[in-house]
Amino acid sequence: MSNGDPVIRIENLCKIYAGDFEALKDVSLDIMEGEIFALLGPNGAGKSTLINIVCGIVNKTSGRVLVNGYDNVEDFRQARTQIGLVPQELLTETFESVSSTTAFSRGLFGKSPDADHIEKVLRSLHLWDKRDNVILTLSGGMKRRVLIAKALAHEPKILFLDEPTAGVDVELRQDMWEIVRELRASGVTVILTTHYIEEAEQMADRIGVINHGEIILVEEKAKLMRELGKKQLFLELDDALEAIPETLLSYHLQFGASHSELIYDYDTRAEHTGITSLLGDLSLAGIRFHDVKTRQSSLEEIFVGLVKRQE
């Protein structure tokens, strides 16, 4: 979790591309040291533009980005040295070997050659056996690992992962999550964008939601799910109902997959959830049930709800 200090401070960042397309609108955001921050947003929301401006790949129109207090344009050396970037696409020199491209990345970021560190990185990503292989011959998952190795070669304090598990199989995705957790444990701040909301749900400490170039929400994941997530009570009835009895209308019950399943939405933060009285009223109405289960809405549902609400 966060240690309290922002490692990245984004202030009033705007980006207008040629053709007057406004990709970022006055974005301000703090990323705290040591956290895993997930940036969620639909396609074209501005996630990659934001990351690319922080990393120096795209020019900003206005605003400011500070990396541990260093302006990423004025003090680009100090700022960029601290950042590693794993891009969304599998972009690398295809004819290089794994070890040479990783060593190249370390040198490019101004670090002296360190064979031990390169070995450590490659071993941690299960790439050591492939170190002499040409990248062209690797599978998509292995290529993604190579990109992570390149990003870690210069020992960054901050790691940006742009859609890190896009197009990788389930097993590899689990491996990636484990790698990210290990990085966080070693003190690296991780910022990831993802389409897999499950990924953010599994890993993130905080969630940011961006849409139409605006940050519409930044919240701790647990708090977000607690506050915006609704809980549902599912009742499996002994006998199907033709309609919901009038005495139960105040509960706004819905039928589930069939008329033998009732769904009740409730708020865990409310003083009274209404569950006790509902069960009592069901009994009075002569409705019997043989199974009860509850379900909390996923981050995906919260995300979709937020984006729809903004639109």
Binding site: C55, G56, A79, T81, T92, G110
Partner: peptide, 18 residues
């Protein structure tokens, strides 16, 4: 041109190199 074509230019642009 080749890193631009392959997309690997991102690394040069994000590196602390003038």
């Amino acid at each position: 041109y080749f890193p631009r074509y392959a997309g690997a230019i991102y690394e040069l642009l994000s590196a602390p190199i003038s």
